[in-house]
Nucleic acid binder design. Structure first.
Lengths: 210, 210, 210, 210
DNA sequence: CATGAATGAGCATTCATTCAT
DNA sequence: TATGAATGAATGCTCATTCAT
C-alpha cells in the first residue's frame, strides 16, 4: 500500500489494467452491466479470463474502477462553467464541450446512460455526494446571471438538464440519430449541425427579454 | 390464422398476453433485455414460467411483441404534430405531450432508451421503415413553417431530436433528475417546472427573428 | 407454506429430496464439506446438477438440511439414557446403542466428525442450544447415581465423552481399525469384540468401589 | 542425491521447508486436504506461491511430506510402551503421553483424523506397513501381561483403540468438548480432569479380577 | 391450459500449476 | 531463489427452454 491507500502497482500492471478498462468500456457501454460478460471483456482485452481476474478481483471491481475513474472526465465540462465572463459565451462553450464529448467519448456517455437508466445502483452515492453539490453550485452561478439581468429568467437546474439531454443524445441515441438523419445528413457533419442548432436554441432562448 | 396472418386468439388469450406484456414492461424497462429473466416476468405476471412460455415462444418473442406493440404509442405524439394551426402552438402541444408521456409512461421511454443504447438490435428495421419516414414528413412541415417565416430558421431534424432528448430525459434519467433536484424541487412538481422551462426555451428559441 | 412454515412439498418432491440427501450423506461423509462437489452428489443421486439444484437452492442448503435432519438420530441414543433402572444396565445399553449406530450408520458419524473437526461451523448453535443442555441433563442423572453409591465417583461429562469417543471410533476411524485388526479380526465380528471389550472396560471401571 | 535417496539439501533449504510444513500443518489440520489452498499455506508461510512450489513440487507433495514427517511423532507414544515394569504403570504412562499429545499437538491429531476419516488415501501403505506391525507387537506385550495375570483379560487391540479414541477425542473433537463443558469446566483444566477420569477408567477397568 | 420437473449452455470465480524473468 | 504473470480445469450457480403429464 502506498500513501493513498491504494495497492502499489508497477507500470506494467497499470498498463494492463488500463488495457482491461479500455476493453471493459467497450463492452459495458454496449451491453450494460448485466449484459456484459467477463469473457467478452477478456476477449476484447486479448487475455484469458483468469488473467483478467488476476488484475481485477471481479466483474464488479472492473465496473467500479471504470465508472469511478471516468467520473471526473464526465463532470469536467460542467466544472469548467465559470461565473466570470459573458454568460452566453460561457454557456455556448459548455454546450460545445458537451457536444464534443458526445462526439469523442460516446462510450463513456452510454456507460453513464446505462447506469442511470438502471437506477444508478453503482453510483448513487456519487450522484448525491458529488454531482448534486456541483450542479447546485453551478445553478447558483446561473441565478447570479439572471439576477444581473444577463440572461432570461429560467430554472437553472432544468437548464442544465436540457443541455445534458440535448448533447448526450448524440452519443446515447446515436443509432437512432443516424437512421433518422439518413446517409446524407447523418455523417460526421451531424455534430456541426447539432452545434449550430443547439447554440441557436439556447442562445436565443436565453437572451434576456425586454 | 386470420386475414392478417396472425394466429387467431380468444379474448382470454389476449388478456393473458396483455398481462404478460405488462409484467414484461416492468421488468425489461428496469433491467434491460439481458438483465431481465423470464422468472422475473412470470413472477410479476403471477403465472408459472412454462405457462408464460405457452403464450410467448421465447424471451425474445415477449420482447418483440412488447416493443412492437408500443411503437405506435411511442410515435403517437409526433404523428399528431399538424401542419395546420399556429406553429408555436403546435410545437408547444408536442412538447407537452412528450413530457406527459415521460411522466405517465416512463417505463415505455426507458424500454426504448435501453433498446437504442444497445444499438437498436430489435427495432432497426422499424426505425428505418417507420420512424425515419415519419420524421422526414414532420421535418417537411417544419420546413414549411420556416419558409412561411412563422418560426426561426432551424434544422428541423435536430429540433425534433432536441424535443425528444429534453422531454425523455425526465423519464430515462429520472434517478439522476431526482437526486440533483433534491427533495424540495424533485417532487411531482418537477414536471411542471420542466414544462415551463422547456416551453420558454423552445418558444423563445424558435420565435421568428427579425 | 404449511403450518410449520415449511414450503409445501409433494410426495414425489420429498422422495427426490430424500434421494439427494442420501447421496449427499455418501459424499459429504467421505469428502467433507469442502471436498464434496455438487457434481458428485448429483452423480450419486442419478440426476443432473441443475435438477439437483431445483430441489435444493445450494450446496450449503443440502448440507444444512442433511446435518439438521440427522441431529435427532445422532442424539437419540443419549436421549434414551434413563435415570430409572440399574445404572450399569443403562450405561451398557447406551454403549450398545452407540456401537450399533457406529456399525449401522457410519456415514452419519463421519459427517458429524468432519463437521466438528473443522470447528463445527454449521452446527455451533445446535451444539450450544441442544447438545450441551442434553449432556448437562444426563450428567445430572449420572451424578445422582454416584450420590446414591450405585457407580464409582467419576466425572460425568468425561464419562460421556469417553463413551462417544470409543464407540464412534469404530465408524470414524474404521479404515484404520480394519487395517490394524487385519483380515482375521477385522471382519464383521469386530463390533462384537468391541462391544465385549467396552462393556468390560466401562462396567468394571465404573463398579462402585469399596 | 545422498545415501538415503533423498535430494541433498542445504540448511537454508531445510529451514524453508520446515517453515512451509509448519504453515501447512496449520492449514491442512483446520481445513482438511481439499479445503486447504496453496495460497493459504503460502500466506501462512510468508512467501509467494511459486516460491513455495519451488520447495515442494505440488500441494500433494507438501501434504505427503507433512504427514510422513509426522508419523514418527504420532507413533512415538505407542513405541515407548514397554513390556518391562508394572503393566498398569506402563498403561497409565501411555495414556498420559497420548493425552499430552492431544493437548500439545492438536493440529497433528486433527491432521491424522482428517486423513483417516477420508479413508486414509495418502497413508494406507504406512498404516499397513508400519502401524499394524507396531500395534501387533504391542498387543503381544499386552497378551503377555494378561497371561501373567497382571491385568484383566481383554482384547489388546480394542484396548489400544480405546486409548487412542479417548485421548485423541480431546484434540479432534475439541470444539465440541469445550461447548459441552462450558466456560467453567472447559478451560485448560479439562485435560487434568480427562486424565483423572481416564486413569480411573482404565486402571480400574483393567485391574486383574479375582 | 397449466405446471412440476428437467437440462444444456453459460457465467463468475477459484485453484493448482506453469512460465518467464 | 524468488516472484509477477498466466492459464486449463474445475466449481457453484443461473437461465432460457423443453418435456411430461
Amino acid at each position: 500500500m502506498n500513501a493513498a491507500g491504494q495497492p502499489a502497482r508497477t507500470r506494467i500492471q497499470r498498463e494492463k489494467r488500463d488495457l482491461i478498462l479500455e476493453a471493459a468500456l467497450d463492452v459495458f457501454s454496449q451491453q450494460g452491466y448485466r449484459g456484459a460478460t467477463i469473457d467478452q471483456i477478456a476477449e476484447a482485452a486479448g487475455m484469458s479470463k483468469p488473467n483478467l481476474l488476476y488484475y481485477f478481483r471481479s466483474k464488479d471491481a472492473i465496473y467500479q474502477a471504470l465508472i469511478h475513474g471516468l467520473l471526473d472526465v464526465w463532470l469536467a465540462p460542467l466544472r469548467e462553467l465559470d461565473s466570470v465572463g459573458d454568460p452566453l459565451v460561457e454557456l455556448r462553450a459548455y454546450i460545445r464541450r458537451k457536444l464534443e464529448m458526445a462526439r469523442d467519448f460516446p462510450r463513456e456517455s452510454r456507460l453513464f446512460a446505462n447506469e442511470i437508466l438502471q437506477g444508478a445502483p453503482h453510483i448513487m452515492a456519487l450522484l448525491e455526494g458529488e454531482l448534486k453539490p456541483l450542479v447546485d453550485e453551478k445553478a447558483d452561478i446561473v441565478k447570479g446571471w439572471i439576477r444581473a439581468g444577463k440572461i432570461a429568467s429560467v430554472d437553472p437546474w432544468h437548464l442544465i438538464f436540457s443541455i445534458w439531454a440535448t448533447t448526450q443524445h448524440y452519443a446515447d441515441f446515436d443509432t437512432q440519430v443516424r437512421v433518422v438523419l439518413g446517409p446524407l445528413k447523418g455523417g460526421d457533419g451531424r455534430f456541426e449541425d447539432a452545434a449550430r442548432f443547439l447554440e441557436g436554441l439556447f442562445l436565443d432562448g436565453l437572451r434576456p427579454r425586454a
